[in-house]
Design a protein around this nucleic acid. Structure first.
Length: 256
DNA sequence: ATGTCCAGTGGAACTGGA
């Protein structure tokens, strides 16, 4: 079983890119982020034609998350993190898919820092950490996949000082990601590529794609039972080089 | 501060968010 996560950065304007990648990569389950579409605008019928059923949580202009499953029906388990209160940003969706609980997330970017956006990033990610502990404690097979908007370690970003004040690399942000690892979750890319330089995002600005000035922001975290089944993990980097590409590339795992 | 890409607004350019 192949499970992928892809920050699509606007599902409708990048639908041809998404369709081409689905046809080539043939993932069984896909977590999508930054739909930038309302529930009504979600291209459910085009995806159904490609063989994917979906659950989604849209929002006008920003955010938005979805889970696609090939030749099977995802069963929605929640469409927001617990304790959301009056937070209506569409950043989390969860479904049972072929016997696996899939949590698809789009964490807040948090810039500029310091400020209310950084405070929101930390508070939202803290709620994610709390929900992750619930899921871990359930002993179910779970994957938490998405754009965490955290560069876990210095080696997960190209050599630069221009990000030193950026929310993505701050100690407070990294400490929250480390809390997830401390719960026991396996960072699939690091399990399979412990020494490699791996990026999943390249900013549109300043020729960062051409210079391979990337960041690793998109992660797949596996619960204990799924980590034992991890066969391979990778980044479909070629997707980032296509015309009209998202600024992120898909990341995937293959499980036994 | 910069840079790049968009949609939204509103009816041309500016704005915000990433």
């Amino acid at each position: 079983m192949k499970i992928a996560t892809f920050n699509i950065n606007g599902i409708n304007r990048r639908l041809p890119n998404l369709m081409a990648w689905l046809a080539e990569a043939a993932p069984d389950i896909v977590c999508l982020q930054e739909l930038k579409a309302t529930d009504k605008q979600f291209p459910a019928s085009a995806l159904a034609d490609a063989g994917y059923e979906a659950v989604w949580k849209g929002e006008a202009s920003w955010n938005g998350v979805a889970i696609l499953v090939r030749d099977s029906t995802p069963v929605l388990t929640r469409d927001a993190l617990p304790g959301a209160g009056d937070d209506h940003q569409a950043r989390y969706i969860e479904a049972a898919c072929n016997g696996v609980i899939v949590g698809c997330l789009y964490a807040p970017n948090g810039n500029p820092r310091p400020g209310p956006k950084f405070d929101y990033k930390l508070a939202w990610t803290q709620r994610l950490v709390e929900h992750a502990l619930e899921l871990w404690s359930s002993d179910l097979p779970v994957v938490l996949a998405g754009d965490f908007n955290i560069v876990p370690e210095p080696r997960d970003i190209y050599e630069t000082t221009s990000y030193k004040d950026n929310a993505l690399v701050q100690p407070e942000s990294r400490a929250l990601y480390q809390q997830l690892l401390d719960q026991g979750w396996a960072d699939a890319i690091r399990c399979k590529h412990p020494e490699a330089t791996v990026y999943t995002f390249w900013d549109y600005r300043r020729n960062r794609w051409q210079r391979n000035a990337g960041l690793r922001l998109d992660h797949l975290l596996l619960s204990g039972s799924l980590a034992g089944k991890l066969k391979q993990a990778g980044v479909d980097k070629f997707v980032r080089g296509a015309d009209g590409a998202s600024d992120h590339a898909p990341v995937w795992v293959r499980l036994r």
